[in-house]
């Protein structure tokens, strides 16, 4: 067997080694449209909440979002259980969860501000501050680390001209370090907004960034 890198079509589409397309791997055609009202109530709490489009001023839970929120509430035997889905929804709309957003969610659910802030700050996926159009989270945990994740992280910082956690001047990119993303078999695993990019090496980084720039308006 050769020492050539074994490539996953996780981001590059058909690499010539597999006859699976990127859409096959991601299941994007199977998933299809994701209605804003959340679709069937059983899956209403499960929409992606890290998107390119962010409107920090967006009203919470109006129109189809309110419909989705009502569906979510119907799935739990206690009102408080809708809190995390509600915070997810707030981040989906606004891109981050500010203290003001936390208080607004608290009021909507009839919970105390202090309680909601305590919960929201516990979870790392809530962006406490605004982030770029693409939040790039590079796993540097063990399986990726021993296969060069530190260099991949450094390459993302270099090619975006940013420091860890800082947003690039064009507002496109924020780079962060992530813990294991459960994609350890194809290191380095990188989460970019709601998608995974697997098998990313330092030299792939410029191409990944180029691709993202092309996709800025695609809504991922």
């Amino acid at each position: 067997m050769s020492d050539a890198r074994f490539r996953n079509p996780g981001w590059a589409g058909n690499t010539g080694e597999f006859d699976l397309t990127e859409a096959d791997v991601r299941g994007s055609e199977f998933v299809g449209e994701q209605p804003l009202d959340g679709g069937h109530p059983s899956v209403a709490p499960s929409l992606p909440y890290m998107l390119v489009k962010k409107d920090p001023e967006a009203p919470l839970f109006e129109g189809p979002y309110l419909e989705r929120f009502e569906k979510i509430r119907s799935r739990y035997p206690m009102a408080r259980a809708a809190l995390i889905p509600a915070l997810n929804l707030a981040q989906e709309l606004r891109g981050h969860v500010s203290p003001e957003t936390m208080d607004e969610v608290a009021a909507l659910l009839g919970l105390s501000d202090a309680f909601v802030r305590g919960v929201a700050t516990f979870y790392t996926m809530y962006n406490k501050r605004p982030v770029g159009r693409f939040l790039i989270q590079v796993c540097t945990n063990i399986s990726c680390n021993i296969r060069g994740a530190d260099e991949v992280l450094a390459a993302f910082l270099e090619h975006t001209g940013t420091e860890l956690g800082e947003t690039s001047s064009d507002g496109d990119f924020t780079i962060a370090e992530a813990e294991c993303l459960a994609g350890c078999g194809f290191p380095t695993c990188v989460q970019i907004n709601s998608r995974y990019f697997e098998d990313v090496s330092a030299k792939d980084v410029p191409a990944v960034l180029e691709r993202l720039k092309r996709e800025v308006n695609d809504g991922f």
Binding site: M78, R80, L87, F122, Y126
Partner: peptide, 29 residues
């Protein structure tokens, strides 16, 4: 039998069984 997909928000400890329950109930995990 109903099934509901509940999506977490990033915390390894929510994989621990009672941490998961706390989180499902809308608390810190």
């Amino acid at each position: 039998i109903d099934i509901t997909l509940h999506v977490g928000a990033g915390a390894y400890i929510c994989g621990e069984e009672t941490g998961l329950m706390s989180s499902l109930e809308g608390r810190r995990g």
